[in-house]
Design a protein around this nucleic acid. Structure first.
Length: 219
DNA sequence: GCGACAG
DNA sequence: ATCTTGTCGC
């Protein structure tokens, strides 16, 4: 798929904040998509002491969850890891990988937060806006927000509250394990996001999409 | 000023 | 994220 470049990637944290504030205005929080036939799992890993960023995209048929396509891209790392600015470090390589994939996905499942971000613009929002695809943020831990402990039962979830608003959900995808932090990235409602994450999850804590992408991004 | 802090 | 084997617990 083709992706339009909308801004520079070599910048300061101050300039990155301006971009987050501008692009966050474009995020759509309603369901805006048709039938989901292909779901993409996205993950990033690092090589050579972090100097090389490796992004992987795994395409799975939905709802069968059978692995059917993938792409891997490597690129020099140009931005450090700073909480709140993860996308500026990982997205460039991810876009390279997405441009290579033959099967265009109907939905993106990203590692990290969507709206559950200090400026409501986590990596899932950034990827959703730049690709114009529906995207969901699937974080393994919390960035911002407060919440109760969700019941220890698959499918149970509690709202993630930040400054008085629900910005996501803390979802138990498997009993006896830590819950996942789900939030809308783009073109999808939180309730729908939760349903799709459950639809992509089987016997493990992480969605099958993420598991496939993780293997590709690691080794 | 002191903590918290996606991957 | 990454460095890394076995081991404790359900």
């Amino acid at each position: 798929m083709k992706i339009e470049q909308r801004h520079e990637w070599v910048l300061t944290a101050e300039a990155a904040i301006v971009i987050q504030q501008e692009l966050s205005q474009e995020v759509i929080t309603d369901d805006q998509f048709g039938t989901v036939n292909y779901v993409a799992g996205i993950d990033v890993g690092f090589e050579a002491e972090g100097t090389i960023t490796r992004a992987a995209v795994a395409i799975l048929k939905y709802p069968e969850l059978e692995f059917c396509d993938h792409a891997i891209a490597r690129r020099p790392t140009t931005f450090p890891y700073i909480p709140g600015f993860l996308s500026f470090r990982e997205v460039p390589a991810v876009l390279d990988a997405l441009e290579q994939v033959k099967t265009s996905p109907d939905l993106l499942l990203c590692d990290g937060q969507g709206l559950a971000h200090p400026r409501r613009f986590g990596i899932a929002c950034h990827l959703g806006i730049l690709t114009n695809l529906p995207a969901i943020g699937v974080g393994k831990s919390r960035l911002v927000g407060k919440h109760e402990e969700p019941p220890d039962q698959r499918g149970a979830w509690v709202p993630l509250i930040y400054k008085g608003n629900t910005i996501g959900a803390v979802l138990r995808t498997r009993p006896g394990t830590k819950p996942l932090y789900i939030s809308s990235g783009h073109r999808i409602r939180l309730e729908s996001a939760i349903a799709y994450v459950m639809g992509c999850t089987t016997k493990y804590r992480l969605p099958e999409t993420t598991r496939h992408a993780h293997k590709l991004a690691s080794g």
